[in-house]
Amino acid sequence: MTDELFRDDANLLHCEATVVALEEGGVVLDRTVAYPLGGGQAGDTGWLRQGERRWRLTDTRKSKVHPGGVLHLLEGELPALGAAVSVEVDAARRQAHRRFHTATHLLCALLPYPVDGCSITDTYARLDFHTDEPFDKAAIEAGLARLVAEAHPVRHRWIDEAELDANPGLVRSMSVQPPRGLGRVRVLEVEGVDLQPCGGTHVDNTADIGGLVVAKIEKKSAKTRRVVLQFA
């Protein structure tokens, strides 16, 4: 129902759209640049505009009422069904999500264990790894700094489900599986570093991530180690 423009270009911050459905607290649009909560990544915020009217976009979610729809949660009285609106994403928040999400791919390359939890916000990124091995904070920070400085290109492509089935090792997450039934799956490649299915938004080059620090390493259970990243 909603054409998700951000899947092919995370640099897009604005688009024109039409309201195709109304839900409590928000609207579903025919197209959008706003990323909906999913895959561990927080939803985009920003604004919707119609002429001189402006609504604060407080969150973006996948619609539970309209399959394939993206729900834009708004403050105040909703625009009318069929209204032509413009969508504008909060650029600073989007960029933070892109930087942190790409950083988690670098973390996966440095720590080759299954991932059983993930959270990506505009202030931190967290990955939970299924292992009982101890982690070295200084070594992780040094590895991240090296991969950022090496300026690896970051790109996505689509593969068919049969190709994914033939390469099950591409899936690192134990808790979030790639969506099935569409015939194709989006994979994210950090050139020479990491390749795995991912629908999130990312920077175009690891150099765009900037400085990172390991804010915390926790032993969450006998078989779970948590790593929390923040910007330096």
Rank of each mutant, 00 (worst) to 15 (best):
P168G: 10
E24R: 07
G117T: 07
T18N: 05
V213K: 15
T206P: 10
S86Q: 13
V28F: 03
C118P: 01
H97F: 07
E52W: 03
T201F: 11
A139V: 08
D208L: 11
P114K: 10
D128E: 15
H101T: 06
H156I: 13
V19P: 02
R98L: 06
H130C: 03
G181S: 09
L22I: 14
P134E: 05
H66K: 10
E133S: 04
E218L: 15
D116T: 09
L144K: 11
D116C: 14
T123Y: 01
A83H: 06
F135C: 05
D3S: 01
E133M: 02
D165K: 12
V190K: 03
K137G: 09
P179R: 11
H66V: 12
N205K: 06
P67W: 04
L71I: 07
Y35T: 09
L188P: 01
V89E: 02
A96L: 06
G82K: 02
V203W: 01
L57N: 11
R184L: 01
Q95A: 13
V154E: 11
R172V: 14
L107M: 04
Y35S: 09
V185R: 09
Q196T: 14
V27T: 03
W158L: 01
A80S: 14
L57W: 11
T123F: 04
L170N: 06
